[in-house]
Design a protein around this nucleic acid. Structure first.
Lengths: 199, 199
DNA sequence: GCGGCAATTGTGGTTATCCGCAACCCTGCC
DNA sequence: GGCAGGGTTGCGGATAACCACAATTGCCGC
């Protein structure tokens, strides 16, 4: 199994029950007794999913969720709620919570969802690695090259680009070659496809 | 205001209240007393949003939602629920419902959400028009041209494409020109960007 | 059988892209 | 001052793309 289930709940009985439940299905887990404690330990590199109680003292589950979102957390979150607060559940799901389940929950269903969340996180991870690679390539592009690149993506001829930037065509060609090299592509078409997902 | 609020509820009192409420805020609306009735009248060209009761005889709100989704409806749906069923709400939102509000609802907030849904539908509409234009252009592409197009998008040289398809380079050039013409682009880069959103 | 459409190919010429080789200018840094 | 890196440019040639003009083949429907 890839990733760990991170249990955050101020009720020790619940934590123990969840830990036992997860262990029984070979799902690795760790536990925290407060949102603050988890936030203190949280690192962007964490892989897994969060099983998060809604109602807790001081910082609530949704509050922790928001804080993590601000910090760029990619962890899928499964909320556990003990009282049927629909607006809360709807708000959480709309903000991207992976799931929102009511207590008492069905043990098997919960673990199934956790496993799905772990798989989701793993696949999301790969996507982000790709984006990171892309970003690191983009970071190597100098400002001038960026200007040229934008115009290449507009399908403009080197001649036109040279004209717009008031430089020689040869210079554009050099920039163009450098851009392709730095971005790891072989043609303008590949470059366009590589960057098509961005702004 | 662009679009209409489509009210579907088997409770006449609720329908009347909603109609009055919407009229008071200059939001056009129509009403149906059952999911079946709405489904019978539904057309893909409808513009607006659906205000849908969860619990109804025969076909429920979520069931109607599913049916509409199958038929390619783009209407945002705001569910009205009289009983705090969290799993239902969570399932609805995860399946793409625009919102899920509990009765009794706050009048102003509901209308605000409806207006947001109408705006959302209008903007989604424009996106879909663009896709439709793209699709109509793609439909003009012959099978052979498609084969060439795929290879162009792989950044392959005409020479290579000719080789792969066992035809003359000149033929590839002709196809290439026809593709650009039919798709309304001027270069392979533009073509790549145009089709980047697809599979 | 004729007209239309898709697919095909050739010739010849213009325009663009792609590259190696060389070189100059400027800025920031040790 | 020397060195590195980014931006710049020229020359010349190989390769690819783009295009107008022209033509052949095969399938389909009226």
């Amino acid at each position: 199994m890839i990733g760990t289930a991170f249990i955050v709940d101020d009720d020790e009985a619940i934590r123990d029950a969840l830990t036992w439940l997860f262990k029984s299905r070979q799902v690795a887990c760790r536990e925290w007794d407060s949102a603050e404690a988890f936030l203190a330990d949280w690192q962007k590199s964490m892989r897994g999913c969060l099983v998060l109680d809604v109602r807790m003292d001081d910082m609530s589950g949704p509050e922790l969720f928001d804080h993590l979102a601000e910090r760029g957390s990619q962890l899928p979150v499964i909320f556990l709620s003990g009282h049927g607060d629909i607006p809360l559940a709807v708000a959480a799901v709309k903000k991207g919570a992976f799931d929102f389940v009511e207590k008492p929950f069905n043990d098997n269903e919960l673990v199934d969802r956790v496993i799905q969340a772990l798989a989701f996180n793993a696949s999301q991870q790969k996507r982000h690695e790709g984006q990171a690679t892309l970003a690191s390539h983009l970071a190597q592009i100098t400002p001038r090259e960026r200007e040229v690149m934008e115009r290449i993506l507009d399908g403009k001829y080197n001649k036109v680009i040279a004209d717009e930037l008031n430089i020689a065509m040869r210079t554009v060609e050099v920039h163009r070659a450098r851009i392709f090299e730095k971005m790891g592509v072989k043609s303008a078409v590949e470059l366009a496809q590589l960057l098509s997902g961005l702004k």
